[in-house]
Amino acid sequence: MENKDFIKPYYESKIVESPDGEEIKVNPLEDYFCGEAPKSHAPNSNKLWESFLNWARAESLWVLGFGTGCGSMEILPLMTPRFDAYRFGVQMRPTPRQSNVIIISGYLSVKTLKRAIRSYEQMQNPKYVMALGSCTINGGMYYDSYNTINRLDHYMPVDVYITGCMPRPEALLAGFEEMKRLIKAGKGEKANEYAENFEWYKANQKKIIKDWNMPDYNW
């Protein structure tokens, strides 16, 4: 029924001809992606040093510019003079490699979940997830929709939930403060939790993403 030709070049090996006429075999799964499951990285054994690093991590939250659903509209005012999240150390980054917070801002359709997982897995340990709105908690008003997930914590580990439909930017700032408190207390280890329960998360993800046309490990 479905024509998947246009996604094929992503993950199937092919032979590319270089300008010199040389033939190069490209296997994206091996060349561009890692073939290992994520590892759990234990915190530094020195408590004092680790708490200092946690302070730095908490005071410098780089948020991935990734918007889903209606909540992305509530993130934009954060950077304006009225709310000015910069003074709390919150900054937006355009690439998942450099950011350590991903905000799932509202309902998440299956198609977007696929992208969100890829972005989340490309972020480096330690990383934090903030979930906005009732849609990420129990589905919200889309609880019986055929295409939106109900509970985000079955697909990626969530550090902070912010209730509301939609939460105001003030609530987001409060959520950032709560996240800072958690990180400073040494409880921001959800990335390790994801690595330890990797099989369970992957099974849940694969249950709803039917055309899994990407590698299992996206980093």
Partner: peptide, 9 residues
């Protein structure tokens, strides 16, 4: 913070 990331690719 950037020096204190635990994993690199």
């Amino acid at each position: 913070k950037n020096y204190s990331f635990r994993s690199q690719i």
